[in-house]
Design a protein around this nucleic acid. Structure first.
Length: 972
RNA sequence: GCGCGGAUGGUGGAAUUGGUAGACACGAGAGACUUAAAAUCUCUUGCCGUAAAAGGCGUGCGGGUUCGAUUCCCGCUCUGCGCACCA
């Protein structure tokens, strides 16, 4: 018998695959195309790790599955090889980055071969190859001509160690994403791509993407579209105006101050003589501060008054103008209106600097009813700190405790006075230790049948600290109807929630809110703290807002903006969080930005026929901290002539962000060797979009840029669809055995080649990585676990060997064998389709276990077909073994293109089925019945079952439910 | 703080539309083979209970809907990730 020896068969098949062209995809083939790949890696010196292998296990399983389904599969591969590690290595050692890169690529490629990935190497690309970056540069010139690439002097994040500018996406918590150094701000002239022009389009397409929700929301948040309004505030005694951006123009009447970002152009100018010095020094400090310093100060607000006032356009009231760094210069207009009553940040600021708080929105409970008459008054909840009990009222007529002390405001009475009065009348308490206001007022809506009108009950809620033993007489009417009861807040709340679940009156949540606030206030009282009510920043009804009073905030938003527009002091406005994409890098190892600076013609793009602008070979790669790349010192290279006028001119010395190179590589795969154009649109037509793109990194940056470029290409007529990636698969990480992240420094990295060479082989490694769990979740490596998968492969191997060597004269239950096989084909096919590889493999294991039971009666010739199917099913996971066994089963065809097995439901079905019987929802019996038994017969059989009878007994079943093919549920 | 996920045996995980919770695997235990070990094969394995059954309890916690809930609804707790003073 041949032993399973992956170290022998795997290299053999890898050689066969490398020697023929079976994995080379054909353009314009009549079969349906399937384009699948993983995110191309940066070829680091460390080699591929277990995560790369995981990614390719997924891609390769899908590629092999699709090939067997009859698709023209392309599984291309390439190298994202521009980047800092190679350059830093070059600075240290003087070795040209191109040399190191070449070595690393060879290493990666060898590793990929050793997993048995069915890659079409004829399409291999490399971003550092001039043949490739020629077209990256060409895309830049296209962008430039459409006004989508532009140069701008701006303050930029600067990493003092890597000596380069960083994009917003490359700054993580105020630190450089590469080296972790605190970043600084530096003003420089930089190149940008105008991604903001596509913000709306990119956002609109998100819902149509078959991508993980997580990524889609991350992208939507990143784009950060805000619908709002710009509002112009005149400045008292000046011709300047300040325009603020707000998503809540409905709160305009509550704007009691304005705040400018330190970077705001008017910030210094508006400082009055007395305030000039403090304003200027505040701004100087703020601008100097790094992001990390601003953040480390937490939420503590700082700021300074300019001494000037703005005029609120709706009510002509004066609003002091402040400068504070909690307002961001780069977002909106760099100025906001302070509405402390309805914005937490403004509230904190107002508290600190004692600015007025004007409440203009009241929270509504229940749906707003038309023509509501306002009734106002307090709601009071009693609390006895000695017993920690809360007081409510029990309604004697309906016998529930979901009533609180509440009432209307008498003429001239304050809420607090009314609260005390009601507490005495309704509950009999006149000694109140303390009356605590529970913050923001609320509205609740109801219909008053006595008065035949809708009511809006506008109430303030109070917590009354009481001693429950000091209860006096209730007023007679109250006494007749209500009894004072005490209990935990949860008890009371429960009664209200019960009511809420059964009642149609949605205003009930108003009372629940009151109780929750009361509980918080009581906890604060017990802890001897002051209760700090939350400010209300949600939707509601307007108050203190002139003619807009009573409107819902959503309605008022429109009405107020309409009014502002009519007065020409405001306008509806959409703002995005996303900024333009900064692509300039002051580094050597990148694609040179193809621009020539001419004194006369400014920035001129290099004409297509002069591309590529090739990176010159140099001696010293190190940047000198002057904000320029090493290229700037290559005067021979820098000095050139203007393409427009031919006069002396200089080359741009910045290189492009690596993300630019990776933003179009998926298209280059469709036509990788074209030296006439970036790709032939006909080929892109055939292959686009990518059917499945697999990765586990870059939720926003890369995946947004790829989309952005493809949208641009679509507008240029170069691609057939707007969206480049149909389905995105985002896999989790494989962590170390202890559940922590694998890292070189921790020394817990599992080397995939070591696992293969230890004798487990690539098939076991691939299969195990897919068996660990759902691919979109993180999982942990397990050295024991891979042994289990190896055992399974070994059992499968042995099964075929035994069949091969047997005289095939056994006894066999052919029907069982067939049914099992079809069942497994169905399961594995379905599971692989939905990328549930772990359950597909489990199904295969189960199948092999069953076959082991069947083989105890020996083999027969009928085993041939089921074994062939099994080998086919295992092929996406363990292709080497599958190829070997396929051959051993007597085939000289390429298994890759043998049609995937199909199943027949009729062959899965058996004559008998198991019906479970439940009595009152509990499992009591299992019945074996004929598949064609009638519903009534099954019900009768269920009732007749002795065990079921034990539970039914003399009681008469009130209901017998039969779910066909599944269960009988009896209710007694 | 906001957004998006997740919580199931000793462990990783399964249950695709509300219908036998714990597939499959690891670990553990027992047996067969062996002089012995490894490998291999077979069996047991959620908890309580029992000689064995019967029975009871069980999918983070508290409620609800339903004949029936891991699955749906309401309210919490913990946890992972993303964004984070974005007005």
């Amino acid at each position: 018998m041949r032993r399973y020896n992956p170290t022998e068969i795997e290299p053999k098949w890898q050689q066969i695959w490398a020697d023929d062209t079976r994995y080379q995809s054909k353009d314009f083939d009549a079969r349906p195309k399937y384009y699948v790949t993983g995110m191309f890696p940066y070829p680091s010196g460390a080699g591929m790790h277990i995560g790369h292998f995981f990614e390719h296990s997924i891609v390769d399983a899908v590629a092999r599955f699709r090939r067997a389904l009859g698709h023209n599969v392309v599984y291309p591969m390439g190298w994202d090889s521009f980047g800092l590690p190679a350059e830093n290595y070059a600075i240290k050692t003087g070795t040209a980055p191109a040399v190191v890169t070449k070595q690393n690529i060879a290493n990666f490629k060898n590793q990929l071969t050793r997993v048995g990935a069915s890659i079409d190497w004829s399409r291999e690309i490399n971003t550092t190859d001039p043949e490739y970056y020629k077209w990256t540069q060409w895309v830049f010139t296209q962008m430039f001509e459409r006004g989508l690439a532009y140069q701008k002097e701006s303050l930029q994040w600067w990493c003092p160690v890597d000596k380069t500018v960083l994009a917003n996406e490359q700054v993580e918590a105020g630190r450089c994403w590469r080296c972790g150094t605190e970043v600084e701000k530096k003003s420089m002239k930089q190149w940008f791509f105008k991604i903001t022009e596509y913000a709306d389009e990119l956002l609109e397409e998100i819902p149509n993407l078959n991508w993980p929700e997580k990524i889609k929301t991350a992208q939507a948040n990143w784009i950060g579209r805000s619908q709002g309004a710009e509002i112009d505030f005149a400045i008292d005694g000046s011709d300047d105006t300040i325009t603020v951006f707000s998503t809540r123009p409905d709160t305009l009447f509550g704007a009691s101050f304005l705040v400018l970002a330190p970077e705001h152009p008017l910030a210094r100018k508006l400082a009055t003589d007395e305030m000039r010095e403090s304003v200027h020094s505040y701004i100087d400090e703020a601008v100097k501060k790094s992001e990390i310093e601003r953040q480390s100060e937490g939420k503590e607000k700082t700021g300074v008054w300019t001494g000037s006032y703005a005029i609120n356009p709706v009510n002509s009231e004066q609003a002091p103008i402040w400068v504070a760094d909690y307002v961001l210069g780069g977002y909106g207009t760099g100025a906001v209106m302070g509405v402390p009553a309805h914005d937490e940040r403004d509230f904190a600021f107002a508290q600190k600097f004692e600015l007025p708080v004007v409440r203009v929105v009241v929270q509504d409970f229940g749906s707003i009813l038309p023509d509501s008459v306002n009734v106002t008054g307090p709601v009071v909840i009693g609390y006895d700190p000695n017993t920690k009990e809360f007081m409510s009222l029990r309604n004697k007529n309906v016998n529930d405790r979901r009533w609180l002390v509440a009432g209307g405001l008498n003429e001239g009475e304050s809420y607090e006075e009314a609260a005390r009065r009601e507490l005495k009348e309704e509950a009999g308490f006149s000694d109140i230790v303390k009356l605590i206001s529970l913050g923001e007022p609320t509205n609740s809506y109801y219909y008053n049948s006595n008065k035949n009108s809708n009511r809006r009950s506008h109430s303030f809620t109070f917590l009354a600290i009481l001693d429950k033993d000091l209860q006096g007489e209730q007023q007679q009417e109250s006494n007749e109807n209500y009894e004072v009861v005490w209990g935990s807040s949860a008890d009371i709340e429960e009664d209200f929630i019960k009511e809420k679940n059964t009642s149609t009156e949605d205003g009930i949540s108003h009372w629940i809110e009151a109780i929750q606030r009361a509980r918080q206030a009581a906890e604060a009282y017990d802890a001897n703290e002051t209760y700090k009510p939350n400010i209300y920043s949600g939707e509601g009804s307007l108050i203190n807002s002139g003619v807009f009073d009573g409107m819902s905030s959503s309605e008022a938003r429109e009405e107020i903006v309409a009014w502002l527009e009519q007065q020409a002091v405001g306008r509806s406005k959409v703002t995005y969080k996303m900024r333009d994409w900064l692509i300039s890098r002051q580094r050597y190892w990148g694609a040179p930005i193809p621009v020539i600076h001419c004194d006369e013609h400014g920035a001129v793009p290099v004409p297509t026929q002069d591309l590529p602008v090739v990176l010159p070979e140099i001696e010293d790669y190190a940047p000198k901290g002057d904000g320029k790349s090493a290229l700037a010192r290559q005067t021979d290279w820098v000095n050139t002539t203007c393409p427009t006028c031919g006069k002396p001119a200089q080359r741009e010395t910045d290189t492009m962000d690596g993300y630019a190179c990776s933003s179009w590589y998926l298209l280059r795969y469709t036509d990788p060797h074209n030296d006439e154009q970036a790709w032939d649109p006909k080929k892109a037509d055939y292959w686009s979009p990518v059917d499945m793109y697999v990765g586990g990194d870059h939720a926003v940056a890369h995946l947004l840029y790829v989309r952005f470029w493809n949208h641009v290409f679509y507008d240029l007529g170069l691609v057939p669809v707007k969206e480049p990636v149909k389905q995105l698969v985002y896999h989790g990480l494989i962590q170390a055995e202890d559940g922590t992240k694998m890292s070189k420094s921790k020394g817990n990295v599992v080397d995939p080649l070591e696992v293969i060479d230890a004798g487990y082989g690539a098939d076991a490694l691939r299969t195990f990585e897919l068996f660990l769990g759902p691919i979109n979740e993180n999982s942990s490596w397990s050295s024991k676990g891979i042994a289990g998968v190896y055992r399974f492969l070994n059992r499968l191997w042995t099964l075929v060997q035994e069949y091969d060597e047997s005289d095939k004269s056994g006894v066999i239950d052919a029907k069982k064998l067939e049914s099992l096989t079809h069942q497994t084909i169905k399961k594995v096919t379905g599971d692989v389709n939905r990328l549930s590889f772990n359950t597909a493999i489990a199904g295969l294991m189960e199948h092999v276990n069953e076959l082991y039971k069947l083989k105890t009666n020996g083999f027969t010739p009928e085993w041939q077909v089921p074994l062939e199917a099994l080998v086919q099913l295992v092929q996406p996971f363990a292709p080497h073994m599958a190829a070997e066994l396929w051959q051993q089963l007597g085939h000289d065809t390429q298994l890759d293109f043998v049609e995937w097995p199909t199943w027949d439901d009729a062959k899965i079905a058996s004559d008998a089925m198991t019906i479970i019987v439940q009595v009152n929802g509990k499992l009591r019996a299992k019945l074996e019945v004929a598949s064609d038994a009638s519903d009534d017969d099954i019900k009768q059989a269920a009732l007749a079952d002795a065990h079921v009878q034990q539970f039914v007994g003399d009681k008469k079943p009130t209901k017998v439910i039969y779910v066909p093919g599944r269960l009988v549920s009896i209710v007694v």
